[in-house]
Structures are given as C-alpha cells and as structure tokens.
Simulated assay, not measured.
Amino acid sequence: MDRAAGGFDHFEITEPTAQTLPFVYNSPHSGRHYPPSFLHDARLDSVAIRRSADHFVDELFAAAPELGAPLLAANFPRAYLDVNREPYELDPKMFDGPLPPYANIGSLRVAGGLGTIPRIVAENMEIYRRRLTVEEGLSRIDEIYKPYHAALRKLIARTHARFGFSILIDCHSMPGNIRIAGSDIRPDIIIGDRYGTSASAELSRAAVAILTDLGFSAVRNKPYAGGFITEHYGRPVRGLHALQIEVNRALYMDELTLEKGPDFETVAGELFTFMRRMAEFAKEFGSTTALAAE
C-alpha cells in the first residue's frame, strides 16, 4: 500500500484465507485518519468535519473475509478525497489557479460541493478556510485516488477470472432522516443498482428480499441508486455486477456524538447473515450467463 505522509496506509485490503466467493466488498467512505495539514486548513471542528463520513461501515462488513471475500477499505476520510467520484470532478472556485482542461468542472456533484475533493460536508458546512493549490488537489488524486481504484480493479478482475463473474458490494451509510420522496417511508437499507444497469435485477431483488426477511425496511434505488463506483464497475453483460448498499446510521450509531450505539453488534450480526445468504444465492448461478442483465 502507498503510505501517507502521516504514517498510515491510505487503504487496507483484508483478504480471506482463500477466496471462495465471487464477491468483493468495498468501503470507500469510512476512513478515520485525518491528515494534520488537512485539519489545519479546515474551518470545521473535529466533530463537524466527520459529519459526511460513513461511520463504522468497514466494521459493519468486516466479516466478509471470514466468509471468503476480500474487503477493501479506505483509511483517508471522504472529506479529504472522495473515490466515489470521477477522478477529476473538481470545483475551480476551490483552487488558486486554473485546473487542467480535462477536469470535469460542470457536474452536478461539483455544483453541490461534493466533487472528488469536496468543498462541504453534510449540512452544507464549508470545509476550507483557504483556496487549495492545484498541485495539492492533483497530488491527492495521483497518490490516493488512482492507487485505490487500481487496487479495486485488481480485486474485481481476479474475482471475475476465478469465478467467471464478480459481484462488487459498495458499502455506505446514510443519515437517519432519509425518506423516500412522496411517502413517509424511512428505509433501513437501500440497495442501488443504477436502475438495473450495474447489476442483474435478479441479484438486487434477492438482496432486498433477504434484507426484508431479516426484518429491515429495504428498498431499491430511491433515493440512492449508486454512485461512480457502482456505475463504473458494473457491467452485467460481461458478468461484472455492482451493487451499492446504504445502511441507515440511526440503526447502529448516535448521529450527534458519532459513537456506536447499543445495537451496533446486532446490526453487524444481521449484515453477516445478509452476506452469507447473498453468497448462497450467488452460488446457485455459477456463470455470467445466469447473472446477465435482464
């Protein structure tokens, strides 16, 4: 792994003793190592700057290697760099010089302050007290973003080569107050498959059915259908399936103190059962044709 100046690895891959499942688990937003220089430049305190993180999600899915699937997890925080974006979704207003011409400065995510290098955390709180140099921004992409995605691609390619198909589970969390538009439904978990384009509809339906059977309120695609990772790596016609899973934070943590709640272990245990049952479901197919998009 590439090592940050602060002395920690940018990400970790936890491998099973032997990979026996066609799954790759990924937790890109649960990093907890905040570079000192980043904190120095931030106008937010140590709690506020963590508001948009996917708290403890890597721990919720930490049992994936025990079941036979690798787990890739970021150690850097989402507020510092978001690998669930295109590599160069950058806001020119954040930088003290011109961005390279290949930067995507007009995306909706950039406009909302949530580009590859975010301008805000949750509740529209501005992160920085100064403009960044272009070199700072590009170095984060070169030194962290690109190695992270190289590692993810390698895990997916290895899995696909070994089993004939692969299933990426991109793991996230969402605020407890999320509701489905036009209803009073407050889902516990949302499965995103980019409206059937990133994974077999059979696979996403199975995920929702398993979660529902476990007692969760589970829905598909609304309001989260999946981000860049799900869209980029999901190619179901080639046997490359990608699902995003969003877990409601109110189930397992205190959203004010950002500490684990009393039900954390219970939720983690239920997600272990979910992973195990998804593995059983996937084994019934055994070929890319069986898991092809509808």
Rank of each mutant, 00 (worst) to 15 (best):
G227V: 09
G227K: 11
F228I: 04
F228R: 15
I229Q: 00
I229E: 00
E231K: 14
H232S: 04
H232N: 09
Y233C: 01
G234V: 08
G234I: 11
G234N: 14
R235P: 00
P236M: 09
P236T: 02
P236E: 12
V237R: 12
V237Q: 13
V237C: 02
R238H: 00
R238I: 00
R238C: 03
G239S: 11
L240D: 05
L240F: 11
L240W: 12
H241Q: 12
H241L: 05
H241G: 01
A242D: 01
A242Y: 05
A242V: 03
A242N: 03
L243G: 04
L243A: 06
I245S: 00
I245H: 06
I245T: 11
I245E: 07
E246I: 04
V247I: 15
N248A: 10
R249A: 00
R249N: 05
A250P: 03
L251P: 02
L251F: 03
L251M: 10
L251T: 03
Y252Q: 04
Y252F: 13
Y252K: 06
Y252A: 01
Y252I: 02
E255M: 10
E255W: 13
L256I: 12
L256W: 07
L256M: 12
L256V: 14
L256H: 11
T257E: 10
T257V: 05
T257G: 00
T257M: 07
T257Q: 05
L258F: 14
L258G: 08
E259Q: 15
K260A: 01
K260E: 01
K260P: 00
G261P: 02
G261M: 05
G261N: 06
G261F: 02
G261A: 07
G261R: 05
G261I: 06
P262C: 06
P262E: 12
P262T: 07
D263Y: 06
D263S: 13
D263N: 15
D263C: 03
F264M: 10
F264I: 06
E265H: 08
E265W: 05
T266H: 10
T266S: 10
T266K: 13
A268W: 03
A268T: 03
A268C: 02
A268P: 01
G269K: 02
E270R: 15
L271V: 12
L271G: 04
L271M: 11
T273I: 12
T273F: 04
F274K: 01
F274T: 03
F274Y: 13
M275G: 15
M275A: 14
M275S: 13
R276P: 00
R277E: 14
M278N: 10
M278H: 05
A279N: 08
A279I: 09
E280F: 05
E280P: 02
E280D: 15
F281S: 00
F281I: 04
F281C: 11
F281M: 09
A282K: 11
E284G: 13
E284Q: 11
F285Y: 15
F285C: 07
G286M: 07
G286R: 14
S287K: 06
T288L: 09
T288C: 03
A290L: 08
A290G: 11
